[in-house]
Amino acid sequence: MSTRKLRNPRSSSSLNMTPLADVSLSLLLGFMVITPIIFQTLSAELPAGAGVGSGQIQQDPIIEYTAEQKILLNGDEVTMEELRERLDEFFPPGTDRQRKVMFTGSGELVYDEVVAFLDFLREYGIETIGIR
């Protein structure tokens, strides 16, 4: 009788690990499912070899960003503000024309400056930027 009394408290003192296992397995599954690989990017189209001379691409406004950080829209130098106005003329609000431009950047520019300019175009509302 006395041995039974001693044995019982020992068995009840063992730690119940089941809730810990539940929580850790749930956390593990949660991390495996919730953390997918996510990229944050600016997308750009590349002209296919045969498509460079096609009419559609020629109709799209061509924006050039020079080494001196000057902006040329179809060959005319414009400021950032003027660029917005000129793009409004190309893509009048309310029309369903695809907002697409062709972009040429000088190789002397720093990549960060080019991305900042492409970011400006995307913020303006350009949907597709073709790089050439």
């Binding site: 997918p36 690989i37 996510i38 990229f39 944050q40 990017t41 600016l42 997308s43 990549y111 960060d112 991305v115 900042a116 492409l118 970011d119 995307r122 913020e123």
Partner: peptide
């Protein structure tokens, strides 16, 4: 990498993309 306000997230098939 550079920063951009208009950067969009690629979630679908992101693991298949070639970086």
């Amino acid at each position: 990498i550079p920063e951009a306000d208009s950067a969009e997230e690629i979630v679908e098939r992101a693991t298949e993309y070639l970086v």
